[in-house]
Design a protein around this nucleic acid. Structure first.
Length: 435
RNA sequence: GGGGGGAUUCCAGAGCGGCCAAAUGGGGCAGACUGUAAAUCUGUUGGUUUUCACCUUCGGAGGUUCGAAUCCUCCUCCCCCCA
């Protein structure tokens, strides 16, 4: 059995740990929970760090609890300086919960008979029937405002108001830490949960929980946080220009998901592989060494992408993502394109801008420049299109096209339906409409 | 209140009344190189156009002139100095 704290430490996933936590973990099978916002019907990779903490925890023989913040998600955590949230209907909430459970089960063991199998709970179940009066009487009494005010997340919001900056902090948000703290207390009482995991921004909220357990139950509970994940270029982890990378294949195609990991730069890949895989210390050291020998093979990125894409989307989708990548970045030729079925073609180019042109236009052939700038608004003007073609920047169906006066005819259509246009490094697809 | 300087194409910043669609740098976009990276080098960077050429653009409105981003008048907005 591995030592959870040591495991997190070498993986670079340990930010802060409450004294005594390691002893607690060594002493008995410990139940630990992590909160997840159920605001959508899918997790995105920003959630993944937390989930991996649970996974490493489970691998270390302890029992993970994933807590969906059905109740807390309605309030909005002030430490994320997020806007106030919208209320989810219970129906939406349950739907999201089921979808998220499915995704979580790819990472965690929910179904075996093991004593440390994971469970999923939703704080809506115990918070929704808790009356305001009961809450302030039973819970609020035990925590002083002075204590709550001392939290960084609260201080920051109040200070920013005094500077005339933000719009202050609502009472609802102020209460957030009590609600989250109560979750911990509740799980402590009902599941014997003694440890809460979270991002480093959660420390303040977690300690409110341990404080409640101490004051109200005379119990001892612990906290472990991990650093917030950053990218070495300073960008936000898990975000692309197009938004979040979701685990749901409908929201983010497996190809895009795969590409996200492939595109990690070397520095990040090294950190990520420690965080997002369960490979051993030795195996990872070996991978890093191999990568350093031949960085252009990008072994780390490929391994990382393979592990996660396979885990989340399955082997078949992973293979397809590779195939798609080769077509887009490798030596994909016109021949390989022609071999693709419509379904595959659409899947590969699903994330690429689409344009439509009527088929009849091709009867006489369409001048390239018109195709780019008139029939579609791919380029702003014919002058720009001309520059592109003259600059050798245009490919049609993966073949360089440099004839400014050229006509595009029916013969060039892939499967009689598509044109794959490559403008520099950017792809676009023109779909031919039957008319 | 007095005096002075400025507003230029995405940004910064040149620009003798004709040779200015406007130097140069940055950024953008392409090409080469490369690891779907970084750096570097090359080309390009208002529109129509094969070329010639034409059209729209230099804070706004007028004017002088064969001709104005460049001269004059008024207006708007910025900056600096002295009180």
């Amino acid at each position: 059995m591995t030592n959870f704290i040591q495991e997190l430490t070498w993986r670079g996933m340990l930010h802060n740990v409450m004294p005594g936590t390691e002893d607690q973990l060594n002493q008995e099978l410990t139940t630990a929970y992590l909160g997840i916002d159920p605001t959508a019907d899918s997790l995105h990779i920003g959630h993944l760090v937390g989930i991996m903490m649970l996974k490493h925890l489970q691998n270390a023989g302890h029992k993970p609890v994933a807590l969906l913040g059905g109740a807390t998600g309605m309030i909005g955590d002030p430490s994320g300086k997020s806007q106030e949230r919208n209320l989810l209907s219970e129906q939406e909430l349950r739907y999201n919960q089921e979808a998220i459970r499915k995704q979580l089960s790819k990472f965690l063991d929910f179904d075996s008979d093991a004593p440390n199998k994971a469970i999923l709970v939703n704080n809506y179940d115990w918070m929704s029937t808790f009356s305001f009066l009961d809450f302030i009487r039973d819970i609020g009494k035990h925590i002083t405002v002075n204590y709550m005010m001392a939290k960084d997340s609260v201080k920051k919001r109040i200070a920013s108001e005094e500077e005339g900056g933000a719009e202050g902090m609502s009472f609802t948000e102020f209460t957030y830490q009590l609600v989250q703290g109560y979750d911990f207390l509740h799980l402590y009482k009902t599941h014997g949960c003694k440890l809460q995991l979270g991002g480093s921004d959660q420390w303040g909220n977690i300690t409110t929980g341990t404080e409640m357990i101490r004051r109200m139950e005379g119990g001892k509970a612990y906290a472990v946080t991990c650093p917030l994940l950053t990218k070495s270029d300073g960008g936000k982890f898990g975000k692309t220009e197009k938004g979040n990378i979701w685990l749901d294949a409908e929201k983010t195609s497996p190809y895009t998901f795969y590409q996200f990991w492939i595109n990690a730069d070397d520095k990040d890949a090294e950190r990520f592989i420690k965080i997002f895989t369960t490979f051993t210390h030795e195996h990872i050291a070996e991978l890093i060494a191999k990568h350093a020998e031949a960085p252009h093979f990008r072994l780390l990125q490929k391994t990382l992408a393979q592990e996660l894409t396979t885990l989340v989307h399955g082997e078949e989708r992973f293979n397809f993502a590779i195939e798609a990548s080769q077509i887009l970045f490798g030596k994909g030729t016109k021949e390989t394109l022609e071999k693709l079925s419509d379904a595959d073609f659409n899947a590969i180019f699903a994330d690429v801008p689409q344009y439509q042109v009527e088929k009849s236009k091709f009867d006489a052939g369409v001048p390239v420049l018109d195709l780019l700038a008139v029939e579609t608004d791919m380029l702003k003007s014919k002058a720009e299109a001309r520059r592109l073609v003259q600059g050798n920047g245009l490919s049609i169906n993966q073949e360089k096209y440099s004839n400014v006066e050229g006509l595009i005819t029916k013969d060039q259509l892939l499967n009689g339906k598509y044109l794959l246009i490559k403008n520099g490094k950017k792809y676009s697809v023109i779909t031919i409409l039957e008319s």
